[in-house]
Design a protein around this nucleic acid. Structure first.
Length: 817
DNA sequence: TATTCCCCGCCAGGGT
């Protein structure tokens, strides 16, 4: 059979890769597995040919004859994809071999935007292959005929598993998979994943506790090139900032070189700014440069994606919204503006180019300020040494479990023990205690201790030992709330004439007066008014105006990249400049070394200095900004226990600053355990407003667990309302039901997600074992400078900033030059 | 002079 499939490749002039043959053999031998490789290596075909080969094996002599659609069996393959936008492309690529091999299978998509007519058809008869999202997959389980639906299923493929793993969407998928395995014990699961550090764990999480699976490495000779555009004059290159104006000309030259170019940025406003800057310089490219980010309306993005695919665009400026997708488009060149933040992320982006087996993938990094040259050099070293980030699975999020049990109760129903054992086959809930299981059931049956008086929280009833949702209205509301994604606090931006452009933060729009101009979706817009929670706009006559700021997530430097940066600096300290980027950095590093020091890997640098602002302490753990926020608060708290003192704090991915009017007792603090990982559990909540953070985190939990209903489509509650309602629940639970496990979960999530507690603890352990290096520079060093500027921007008037920054830069420039 | 902060999903029932 493998030979016949290889023959199909041969007719297309392709030679199957060894890893593809390995997948088919393993599949036909009845194995589960996961395929792991860079993008553009033929993973999709590898996964698809397994079930296809099985069908051919059962139906010999099919080759060459055109099959009949009517002969198609029921649902055999379920294909899970994390993105709606990927579904259509996948559908096409799965169909091709079907037609050529004469297999009468059908392939259809079912996601949130599947048409009513197709939906109706599918409710009568499912296709042989259904492509769907985790959310729509779970929705299928809420049907009362769920058992029949999956009765003939042979195989589940989970595409881009690395995207789902380590998120609540991944946990939701784990639970749904456990359910289907119970309904259909022989079903095979194959995962498809891009580069990932912790393969074994990723595979186990997909397959469930105790299941055996084969990991197939899709190692084909895939050359990856990471290079950079270097600034011509390093002494005039900015020491901080993220706009990188001076790099516009060389970037434009790269675009001119020809081919289609993807330009990745780290933020949405950066994408808007660069899109505009490129057009300012090349107005003749007005129809050839696209813009793509998560706040743009789906329709606007679809158009850009289609143009890209058809080769109508010269370049697209984008955020990670194009990290996945557009697999068949002719992307020739990938640029990364600013620090890549992580190794896997950079490799993923490199993989957008040369998206053909055998072709080289290349990404060109463009630094926005001087120290980003170090990031680039470090990312390359880490990538070449195969130091890829892990994605850890989540453990026991009870909100997701509560949602899942209601889903199953709304479908075929379940029994206490069988369901508990089924849930425990997932890696996420393998340690679920009886107490926790009882609590979750009590929560959905009675509403827990605090809500027992309210019938709408008695969602599930027990009849003869079977847990079911009997109330039609409750079932309907539940189906409308399935999923784990919280949407942003944003307002629709729409032309008064009709066309929707996308969404922008309420806080930005609230500051605008009618007539104010701003740049959004690559267009100059004039604000008209706000009504019906929509910001109405019209085209503005010219392009000058503000650019929206989004309160998006703050992606910290990954652990692997942070580690690589420390190594890169250590090499530089001993005069070993291993790349052109580091060579270029030499004058700036020399200033750092002369004024203060460059820390070696086992050194913890602290800079102490006085300016007319006060007494500064700069700490450089190189652990990413989330950890630094936690460390800054922790250190401030610990120092203030020795001597009452109030600090202002600032941080970036390299380090943080504590500033006070008087000198802090640093030496004493270090002696008394400033850096100790001990008492972290006590000191973290004491140093931060942890209760307020937990209350905010509880918003998501309340939504997922089904406490807060978002409202019917088209009349969504605003986020403020959801916040208020969930805040109310939080207060009620805290007062009347303090043992509520969802409250504890909120505390845990704050510690882990917002403060990265385990990373913070291991950082402290590392720093405690380091040699502490205290220096007393006369003025802020190159490493201190970006942190300082960041704080100044928030606190001082713009005139003062300008003068100060000018003075500082001049001084630094003189020294470096 | 510098501006900054990813992404992803989801309904049902009654009318024509």
């Amino acid at each position: 059979m493998v030979d016949r499939l290889a023959g199909w490749f041969a007719t297309r002039g392709w030679t199957p890769f060894d890893f593809q043959l390995e997948v088919w053999r393993a599949y036909l031998a009845g194995e589960n597995g996961m395929i792991h490789s860079a993008t553009g290596t033929g993973k999709t075909l590898a996964a698809w040919m397994g079930p296809l080969g099985e069908w051919l094996l059962e139906n010999p002599g099919t080759d060459g004859k055109k099959g009949h659609r009517n002969d198609a069996p029921g649902l055999r393959v379920l294909w899970i994809t994390p993105l709606r936008a990927l579904a259509a492309d996948t559908e096409l690529s799965l169909r091709l071999p079907l037609e050529e091999l004469g297999v009468p299978w059908t392939v259809e998509t079912r996601t949130g935007d599947t048409s009513q007519s197709l939906r109706k058809k599918q409710s009568e008869r499912l296709p042989t292959t259904l492509i769907t999202t985790p959310e729509s997959f779970t929705l299928m389980l809420t049907r009362d005929d769920a058992e029949e639906l999956f009765g003939e299923l042979r195989c589940i493929v989970v595409d881009e598993w690395h995207e789902l793993l380590s998120t609540k969407r991944g946990v939701q998928t784990e639970l749904a998979l456990a359910r289907v395995r119970r309904l259909r014990p022989g079903v095979k699961t194959w995962g498809v994943s891009a580069t990932l550090g912790n393969l074994e764990d990723a595979s186990q999480t997909l397959q469930g506790v105790g299941a055996q699976a084969r990991i197939v490495e899709g190692h084909i000779a895939k050359e990856i090139v990471i290079d950079s555009i270097l600034p011509t004059n390093i002494t005039r290159f900015p020491w901080s900032g993220h706009f990188g104006t001076s790099m516009i000309p060389p970037v434009i030259r790269s675009i001119e070189d020809g081919g289609t170019c993807l330009i990745f940025t780290n933020t949405r406003s950066q994408a808007e700014i660069w899109h505009q800057s490129i057009l300012d310089n090349r107005p003749d490219w007005v129809d050839q440069i696209g813009l793509h980010h998560g706040s743009l309306d789906r329709e606007v993005r679809d158009r850009v994606e289609a143009d890209l695919k058809e080769g109508r665009l010269r370049a697209v400026v984008t955020t990670s919204s194009l990290d996945l997708g557009v697999d068949f488009s002719p992307v020739d060149r990938v640029l990364q503006l600013g620090t890549p933040k992580g190794v896997a992320r950079l490799l993923q982006r490199a993989g957008r180019s040369g998206h053909r087996p055998g072709a080289a993938s290349r990404v060109t990094c463009v630094p926005m300020h001087a120290f980003e040259l170090v990031d680039i050099a470090a990312a390359r070293t880490a990538a070449m040494n195969g130091r890829i980030e892990n994605r850890e699975h989540l453990s026991k999020p009870l909100d997701v479990l509560a949602q899942h049990v209601v889903s199953i109760a709304a479908g075929s129903g379940f029994r206490y023990e069988a369901m508990r054992d089924e849930v425990r086959t997932t890696v996420a809930y393998r340690d679920l205690t009886d107490e926790e299981w009882d609590w979750v059931l009590d929560f959905v049956v009675r509403g827990g201790d605090a809500l027992r008086a309210y019938p709408e929280y008695r969602r599930v009833v027990v009849e003869d030992g079977v847990y079911r949702v009997t109330d039609k209205d409750i079932a309907k509301r539940h189906r409308m709330s399935i999923g784990t994604i919280m949407s942003d606090m944003a307002m629709t931006v729409q032309y008064v004439t009709g066309g929707r452009l996308g969404t922008v933060e309420e806080s930005f729009l609230a500051r605008l007066k009618p007539g104010d101009r701003f740049l959004f979706a690559g267009k100059a817009l004039q604000f008209v008014r706000i009504s019906d929670s929509t910001a109405w706009v019209k085209r503005a006559p010219n392009l000058k105006g503000a650019i929206p700021r989004w309160a998006g997530g703050r992606l910290p430097l990954s652990t692997e990249l942070a580690h690589a940066i420390r190594q890169e600096l250590e090499c530089a300290k001993y005069g070993e400049l291993r790349s052109s980027e580091m060579e270029l950095m030499a004058p700036i590093l020399a200033v750092q070394a002369n004024w203060s020091a460059i820390p070696a890997e086992d050194e913890f640098l602290i800079e102490q200095l006085e300016t007319n602002e006060g007494h500064h302490l700069f700490f450089y753990p190189f652990e990413g900004r989330l950890v630094h926020e936690g460390l800054a608060a922790l250190f401030a708290y610990r120092i203030s226990r020795i001597q009452p003192i109030t600090f202002s704090m600032a941080c970036n991915d390299y380090g943080f600053e504590l500033l006070a009017p008087e000198e802090a007792p640093l030496a004493q603090a270090i002696q008394q355990g400033l850096i100790s990982p001990e008492n972290l559990i006590h000191d973290i909540p004491a140093s931060l407003n942890a209760a307020e953070m937990a209350k905010r985190q509880f918003r998501e939990i309340a939504r997922i667990a089904g406490l807060v209903f978002q409202g019917y489509p088209g009349m969504h509650k605003t986020l403020k309302q959801v916040q208020a309602t969930s805040g109310l629940f939080y207060d009620v639970f805290a007062r009347y039901d303090p043992k509520n496990m969802l409250l504890q979960q909120a505390d845990r999530e704050v510690l882990e997600k917002q403060l990265e507690k385990s990373r913070l603890a291991s950082a402290l352990a590392r720093l405690e074992g380091s040699t502490i290096l205290i220096t007393n520079p006369e003025s802020p060093t190159p490493m201190a400078f970006p942190i300082l500027v960041d704080r100044l921007r928030d606190t001082v008037t713009s005139e003062n900033i300008t003068q100060r920054i000018q003075k500082l830069s001049l001084k630094l420039e003189k020294e470096a030059g």
